[in-house]
Simulated scan of single mutants.
Amino acid sequence: MFMGEYRHNIDSKGRIIIPAKFREQLGLKFVITRGLDGCLFGYTADEWQKVQDEVDKLPFNKANARKFARLFLSAATECEIDKQGRVNLPEPLIKYADLIKNCVLTGVSTRFEIWNADKWDEYNEKSQDEFNEIAEDLLDF
């Protein structure tokens, strides 16, 4: 399970440090792809297979299903962590998530996300205001 929030910089070569707690779970190879809300999603190889299986179940005769599958899967890249604990992100993913310097990596259960720090702070602040209402609608503790 991925959890927590970590702040790291992306360098001019597109490399970003993956938190040690995430690295322990990721194994030798994992997948990063275009996510929702303007961030990137990262998955272990096993979790990626489950996600890909779900995408494969989408009805190919529906235009939105084809569009989603194309955008989501075409951006996916298999990643490896270097000796310094970094991963090298491809330019299209950097551009998609607007990763310039300051980034936030967040654990979200079965995946982790990589955000532009300013976008994350804005999203987080806005969502905090709605947190109680969202919880009431979705959860029954």
Results as ranks from 00 to 15, higher is better:
A75S: 15
P59A: 10
I18H: 12
V87I: 15
K21W: 07
R86C: 14
G107H: 03
G4D: 06
E130A: 10
F141N: 03
E133N: 15
K57I: 04
A76L: 01
D140F: 15
E113T: 02
Q84C: 11
N88Q: 11
D129M: 07
S74Q: 12
L73H: 12
P92K: 00
F131C: 11
K29F: 11
D56C: 08
K119L: 09
N116Q: 05
R23Q: 04
V87R: 06
T106G: 09
D53W: 02
T77D: 11
L139W: 00
G14H: 06
A117K: 12
G38P: 06
G4W: 06
D121H: 09
F22H: 04
E125Q: 08
D53E: 15
Q49H: 09
I134S: 14
D11S: 02
R86T: 13
L26I: 03
D56V: 01
D140Y: 15
S12G: 15
E78V: 07
P59H: 08
V108S: 15
V108W: 06
I16C: 08
K21H: 09
Q84Y: 06
I32Y: 04
N132L: 03
R66A: 03
N64I: 06
I10Y: 02
P90H: 02
F22M: 11
R86Q: 13
K126C: 07
A63M: 09
F41V: 01
A65E: 00
L93K: 12
K21P: 05
I114H: 02
T106Q: 12
R86V: 08
E91K: 10
G4H: 03
D46W: 00
T110N: 14
Y96L: 13
C103Q: 11
L73W: 07
K57Y: 01
E80F: 06
T106V: 10
K62T: 08
A20S: 14
T106C: 07
R86F: 08
E136Q: 14
L99Q: 11
L89P: 10
K13G: 04
E122S: 14
W115Y: 07
F22G: 04
T110L: 04
A65D: 02
L89G: 06
K83C: 03
A20K: 03
Y96D: 15
D11N: 02
L36N: 07
N132V: 01
E91H: 07
E130D: 14
I114A: 04
R111K: 09
E130Y: 10
N64D: 15
D82M: 07
R70T: 15
Q52V: 07
L138N: 06
C103Y: 08
T106W: 02
C39S: 14
L105S: 11
E5I: 11
E113H: 01
I17S: 12
E122L: 13
F72E: 10
Y123N: 09
W48Y: 10
V31P: 01
I17L: 08
A97S: 03
D56H: 06
L36D: 11
E78S: 13
L26S: 10
D53F: 01
F30C: 06
S109W: 10
K21V: 12
E130G: 06
L105T: 11
L71C: 10
D11K: 00
F131I: 11
R15S: 00
D82S: 06
W120T: 08
R66G: 04
E5W: 07
Y43R: 05
E24H: 03
N116K: 04
